[in-house]
């Protein structure tokens, strides 16, 4: 006796099995047929322009994905002595806002949302080294730059070298003050003398010169120098120093 239901089931299984390779072959063929024109078109086009186009298109489409690059920038902008020195060379550079500096140096970041750059935690660390060294103020008439005072020998040598090259009285004044503060009175005397020869109208230079003379034991020479300068400039600070030397209160 035939089991028709079972036979029909087996037949269905057999048909599926027999058609499976054909279906697979047909679907692969269909996929190839669809993909072939695209592959053909791709092969016809020159490859290098296509790559650049793709690159730019992906960049423009995926602008937010540049964020990681922006986040990496603080590590580049971490403070270093070289970075401080570039600020010291130019007054304008130090006075420029930080955000504008970053934007000019990295124009590509202008496409990126600015808050990302401004909210960086490292910007505070950038400001810290700028504020930390005491800034010596120079009379505005001289248009002298405000210099960061650095305690290291390497830095003072660097400033001396720059003074030698530029003969900037502001730099010389910084060096003279540095040496006087460190007890190198002869060095302070020499640099103050050099500044006076470049510009003889700087109060502090004459005062350091006179104070160095006192410290070196030439009190009379110091008094004589101060009197001469007071007669020429009528400087109040010079007069005050002369009074303290004469009264013996100067230390």
């Amino acid at each position: 006796m035939l089991d028709i239901r079972n036979l029909e089931r087996r037949w269905l299984k057999y048909k599926i099995k027999s058609y499976a390779p054909h279906i697979a072959f047909a679907s692969v063929g269909a996929v190839l047929l669809i993909a072939l024109p695209y592959i053909w078109m791709d092969s016809d086009k020159p490859k290098s322009p296509l790559k650049t186009d793709r690159f730019f298109s992906t960049v423009s489409k995926k602008a937010p994905e540049i964020k990681p690059i922006v986040e990496e920038s603080p590590t580049v902008l971490e403070p270093s002595m070289d970075f401080v020195q570039t600020f010291q060379t130019s007054v304008l550079e130090t006075k420029r806002p930080l955000s504008s500096t970053i934007q000019t140096t990295k124009p590509i970041q202008q496409e990126v949302p600015i808050p990302k750059v401004l909210n960086l935690p490292d910007t505070s660390s950038l400001k810290t080294p700028l504020k930390s060294p005491p800034i010596v103020s120079i009379p505005p008439s001289d248009k002298s730059p405000s210099l960061n005072r650095n305690e290291s020998k390497l830095d003072i040598e660097s400033v001396e070298r720059r003074f030698k090259d530029s003969s900037n009285p502001s730099l010389g004044l910084f060096i003279a003050r540095y040496h006087y503060d460190h007890g190198n009175y002869s060095e302070a005397y020499n640099f103050a003398l050099k500044i006076n020869s470049i510009n003889n109208k700087i109060d502090e230079s004459w005062i350091i010169f006179s104070k160095s003379l006192v410290k070196l034991g030439n009190v009379e020479q110091a008094k004589k120098t101060l009197r001469f300068y007071i007669s020429e400039s009528n400087s109040e600070s010079a007069r005050s120093l002369l009074d303290s030397i004469e009264r013996g209160t100067f230390k």
Binding site: L2, L7, E8, R10, W11, K13, Y14, K15, K17
Partner: peptide, 16 residues
Amino acid sequence: LKWIEMAAIHTGLIRA
């Protein structure tokens, strides 16, 4: 044709 194939399955001419 389906029934011919079913008969073939039954007789063992087709292994399904």
